[in-house]
Amino acid sequence: MHRLRAYVIPYRVWMTTLIILPSLMILFLAITDFDLYLKGPFVFTLEGLRVFTESTIQIALMNSIKYSLLTTIIALLIGYPAAYYLANLKSAYKTFFVALIIIPVWSNMLLRIIAWEKLFFPISILNNFGISLDWIGSDKAIVVGMLSMYFPFMILPIYSVLVKLDQHLIEAARDLGANGFDTFVKVILPLSLPGIVSGVIMTLLPAMTTFALPERLGGGKVLLIGNIIEDAFMKTGNLQMGSIISVVLMIIILILFKGIMTVDKEGETLL
């Protein structure tokens, strides 16, 4: 078996190059005035940190935290029971129902965002059903849109843990005097923690960083840090500002990643 270990070496080099190198590069861009494309001389400067005093940036940071937390909490509160229901379904079509959760993810996300956008304007196909919404730019629009996009990422990791849960542990808890509620709180919930942590992170991070969704459903009024990064890298070319925000984001990711790795060392809940 040990001869097979050689297969890992090129992959390690490839992954290190494409993960560590750019991370250092972004950190470097954040504290210098280096131009990525002209590659001229550069000087170290902390000038860029001043972006944190700008109200647009502050609002974008606050919005990212607000919307991602709100979405994640609601997605967990509704997604956990749904995952539980699916995991305990006694039907030959169980795998089919679970597959139904994944299918929407395979539909183009931009189009799904547009679909919500169309419904949230006062004049929409909903008028045919006597409904007229004026939600564009509201919290509702963004949270509903996010839930619709990220529910599967919350549900699937929780489902995969619950469906593998040893039924004998539940029977053992009942045998030792636990009623349904006790069994859930003392056995099922703690044992599904890895799935919950994965689900929370896989929902929180995309929600925090999306830029297409707030752009469309926010009607141009709501900015998230994703929008700031997109603007900086793709439109204004202010790489230093983009990198500074990215570094903040990467610190958050690092903390969350540590969380995932403590409960699920091999990433078994990530698929």
Binding site: M15, I19, I201, M202, L205, P206, M208, T209, T210, F211, G226, I229, E230, S246, L249, M250, I253, L256, F257, I260, M261, G267, L270
Partner: peptide, 11 residues
Amino acid sequence: NNVPVVNPDIV
């Protein structure tokens, strides 16, 4: 291996 899986697409 899991870094690109967990990382948001934008990063």
